[in-house]
C-alpha cells in the first residue's frame, strides 16, 4: 500500500486544491504519509516528493524540522505530555514520571508491545488544564494518575479489540 492507494486520492486532491503552488502541499501530504505508514518512512518521503515535484532531500528536510512528523517507527498510540513551564508549575513533571513508570519505559521509548510511544513536549496550549497529554493528536486534559491509568487501559482494550476484528493487519486509531 502507499499514497497512490485510491483511498487517498480525494484527500491528496483536496490538499493540492488549497494552494497555488504544489510545494505547499508537502505538510498535509506528510501527515498522510505518516497515517499510511505509521511514521514518515523513506517510502512516504519519496512518494510525497514525487507528488509535490520536490527532491526527496527537501521533503526529508521538512519532515525533520517539525516535531509532529516521526522519522522513526512509533507505537500505535503516540503520547505527548506537555512538561513546559506552565504545565510544570502544575505538576506535569510528576505526572509524566508516573506515566513513564506505569508504562515501564523511558522518555522517547516505545513499549515492548509496540502500543505506546511516549515523549515530553513543549507547550500545547492547554496550560490551564494541566496536567494533560495528547494521544495521536487528540487532547486529554485535567488529568491525574487515575485518569491517566483509565485512558491507558481503555487504549489497551481498544487495541486488543482491533487486533481481533482486523486480524491485526491495520493500525488502530484513537
Amino acid at each position: 500500500m502507499s499514497l497512490t492507494d485510491k483511498k487517498y486520492a480525494k484527500r491528496i486532491e483536496a490538499a493540492f486544491a488549497k494552494y497555488p503552488d504544489k510545494r505547499s502541499a508537502v505538510m498535509p501530504l506528510l501527515y498522510l504519509a505518516q497515517e499510511e505508514y505509521g511514521w514518515v518512512s523513506p517510502e512516504g518521503i519519496h512518494e510525497v516528493a514525487e507528488l509535490c515535484g520536490l527532491d526527496p532531500t527537501q521533503v526529508r528536510s521538512i519532515a525533520g524540522f517539525y516535531t509532529m512528523y516521526s522519522e522513526k517507527p512509533k507505537g500505535q498510540y503516540w503520547l505527548h505530555v506537555c512538561t513546559d513551564l506552565a504545565c510544570a508549575l502544575r505538576g506535569a513533571d510528576q505526572f509524566y514520571a508516573e506515566l513513564l513508570e506505569d508504562l515501564g519505559i523511558q522518555d522517547g521509548e516505545t513499549t515492548a508491545d509496540g502500543l505506546f510511544t511516549v515523549e515530553h513536549v513543549m507547550c500545547l496550549g492547554a496550560c490551564d488544564r494541566a496536567p494533560m497529554l495528547q494521544c495521536n493528536f487528540h487532547f486529554h486534559e485535567n488529568l491525574d494518575r487515575d485518569k491517566m491509568r483509565a485512558l491507558i487501559d481503555k487504549w489497551r482494550a481498544e487495541a486488543k479489540q482491533h487486533m481481533k476484528t482486523s486480524g491485526g493487519s491495520e493500525r488502530a486509531g484513537d
Partner: peptide, 10 residues
C-alpha cells in the same frame, strides 16, 4: 478561506 496545519514548531 483555507486552513493549514503546522506540525510542531514554535
Amino acid at each position: 478561506v483555507y486552513t493549514h496545519l503546522g506540525a510542531g514548531a514554535y
